[in-house]
Nucleic acid binder design. Structure first.
Lengths: 117, 117
DNA sequence: ATAACATATGAATACTTGTTCATATGTTCA
DNA sequence: TGAACATATGAACAAGTATTCATATGTTAT
């Protein structure tokens, strides 16, 4: 976590400029944690499904053919990241996207991977 | 990786609709892998730095106060994801962002975390 | 060619994380 | 109240990953 490299190529102007621009540890950490939430196939699928329609835990489990427990764990992660929201109707809990950024981030991601192929 | 949940709440219409919309394993995997690349503080910092100016490996190491090796490993990941590009000038290798999606994804991410605070 | 240097890479380790299994919480209806 | 059900949660294990250390590759100048 320390020890600067010892090259002579270092352009001190660029380095000081870079240090000025550099994200704080907190911002970089928060941002990385946000993207990390997108960084799992199951969660990406869930987010994409929820971008189409509201669904309950059980529905999602059936669509993805995964256990209720696995889905519930993932929904908790998504909720902590404020990417999804839920409403309770009796026993069942319905989930929706919480945020417009989700649409944009998903769209840009899809654009990127299709552009790269 | 199997076993559907056995609720009765299942709305068959929504489930079949969901299955129709569901991403393929490949797309979800590629997309998740892309976001995973953004899901590390070091890489986020590097991407953000490169969104300001072109930098060589050594410069980046100095700005982040990390070893040349660590940075080089991360740059390889970024390059494989087609997020950065490099040009060689003698011994030194300069890196730049490869793609406009990077800007947008970073911006949306920043918007999201600042909106959430 | 050789020395000096900038970057890349491989193996190893410590750490994180997604799923499963078992069980807890909370809600509805009889 | 109690049974049935939908969801949530905790512990544990397997699989993936970021950094370090040592070293390899490739470039420049003498």
């Amino acid at each position: 976590m320390e020890a600067t490299c010892q090259c002579n190529t270092v352009n001190m102007d660029k380095v000081t400029q870079g240090k000025a621009v550099l994200m704080t540890e907190n911002v970089a950490g928060d941002l990385a944690n946000l993207y990390k939430v997108f960084g799992d196939p199951t969660r990406v699928k869930i987010l994409h499904l929820l971008s189409v329609t509201e669904l309950c835990v059980c529905d999602i489990a059936n669509v993805l053919e995964m256990t209720q427990s696995a889905i519930s764990h993932q929904l908790r992660v998504l909720k902590q990241a404020k990417l999804v929201r839920n409403r309770k109707d009796g026993k069942t809990v319905y989930y929706t996207l919480d945020d417009d950024h989700v649409h944009t981030i998903l769209k840009q991601g899809l654009d990127h991977i299709s552009h790269v192929l």
